[in-house]
Amino acid sequence: MIRSELIQKIADENPHLYQRDVERIVNTVFEEVTDAMARGDRVELRGFGAFSVKKRDARVGRNPRTGETVQVEEKCVPFFKTGKLLRDRLNGKA
């Protein structure tokens, strides 16, 4: 399923809404999650999962092509942990 299919499903269920508004609604949900993580905040969606930010320490990396060593700076990366209900549903337990 891709973004446009998700928008279509929600538009089909809500015939009283303009397609344009459904697009804005779906985009807002994802935008809010990304914005929160860009601020260093967590997003906890019970049953679905939680988005958080993890810190990766600085390290000495290597250019795999040339073998040259490069200093990689400390950085923050997005992380997702699946919620209990969804994990159970994936395994046919709920």
Partner: peptide, 26 residues
């Protein structure tokens, strides 16, 4: 770095602000 936790409530509040729907429908 912020250390707030957002929930469904924050997402629906954002939808409520973005589109003129009720809080409940958002």
């Amino acid at each position: 770095m912020g250390d707030n936790t957002l929930t469904r409530m924050d997402l629906s509040e954002a939808v409520f602000r973005e589109v003129g729907l009720s809080r409940n429908e958002s």
